[in-house]
Nucleic acid binder design. Sequence first.
DNA 1: GTCAGTGCTGACCGATCGGTCAGGTTACGG
DNA 2: CCGTAACCTGACCGATCGGTCAGCACTGAC
Lengths: 187, 187
Amino acid sequence: MARPSAALRGRILDSSRRLFSERGYEATSLQEIASDVGCSKAALLYHFKNKDALLAELLTPVGQRLAELLEKVAPLDGEELVRTTVNDLVNSALEYRLEIRLLFEDLPRLPARPELNLLPDSTERLLDCLTGRSRDPRARVAASMVLAGVALTVSARDEAPVGGDGSDADLRHGLVEAALRALGQDL
Amino acid sequence: MARPSAALRGRILDSSRRLFSERGYEATSLQEIASDVGCSKAALLYHFKNKDALLAELLTPVGQRLAELLEKVAPLDGEELVRTTVNDLVNSALEYRLEIRLLFEDLPRLPARPELNLLPDSTERLLDCLTGRSRDPRARVAASMVLAGVALTVSARDEAPVGGDGSDADLRHGLVEAALRALGQDL
DNA sequence: GTCAGTGCTGACCGATCGGTCAGGTTACGG
DNA sequence: CCGTAACCTGACCGATCGGTCAGCACTGAC
């Protein structure tokens, strides 16, 4: 076949997202992705300049989502700021379960990634919102715990994720409630 | 020199702990460790059967610590159970900052590790303790968030860790308080 | 003194890594 | 019906991976 599937590109992205998330970026070889997709490694590198480009394309939407979130909550403050941030954070995390793992576990370890260096700054701003822009060190620690906890919990690898029956509703509400409690917002 | 330093073994462990934690297990090569220590790769493999053995030896103490923690809180229940578990969890996490990263981020991704398969079970029991042995799905979600949040926060890579000035006291107390709030324990 | 054994090195191994390249096959515009 | 460009393959590259091995330097026991 000749022009059979530019859809292959999409399938490569899907496989990469899954495999990177399961095994980690470094631990996943291009050959493994190619085998999973059912194409040659060369085909893979025809669609993506290199392994890095693959990762970047997977993470871009998450970065955008984060930017939107920050923009949306920028004018808010006080209790409304915290509640909105927590809600959106949990929703975003659930939406990008697989990418979150990459973002939290692999990215920080890869040698300084020039185009994504806005990320530490975004994380900082996110922490600010979670504290309701408080500078209290302990509030920041709590925010850090919440952020990391939400991220890692939604991306927990084993099926029957963490809630008993595994319903997303329990996961979502459980996280929001626990996060708000941790941040000192009375429910 | 002939019998100059069985201390080399310890230095290898130190470097491995640091490098594994910074870059990840898969992403760290034996050569990098050897260079960091200042010995040959062969010397490294003289002291440790293989790369896996190195990782196992780093994680064993953490596993023991976790087992102790679980044994200690086993007879407790109710509020005392939760408070003691949270306190000990935070202390243990602070004590094994670097190893925690490996445990939470690398281990789950490595192909099934026979000798450490007790770990998922231990995690499960730890979650039980954090919920005060409740079976409520949302309580388990909260416990999962706390566990992941504590682990990832103490092992945050960038210096000036997460608290403003970075004092361990703020980190410790901030985490304990936030965790207890998240778990619904009134302070 | 010598000899067994510990601690270590450099050279080397096959496998696999990310990535390149020449070329083949098909689809489509002219 | 032909040419160009898109899509893809297999063969190949140098580098590096985890790991092995023969042998050297030195120590302590006898």
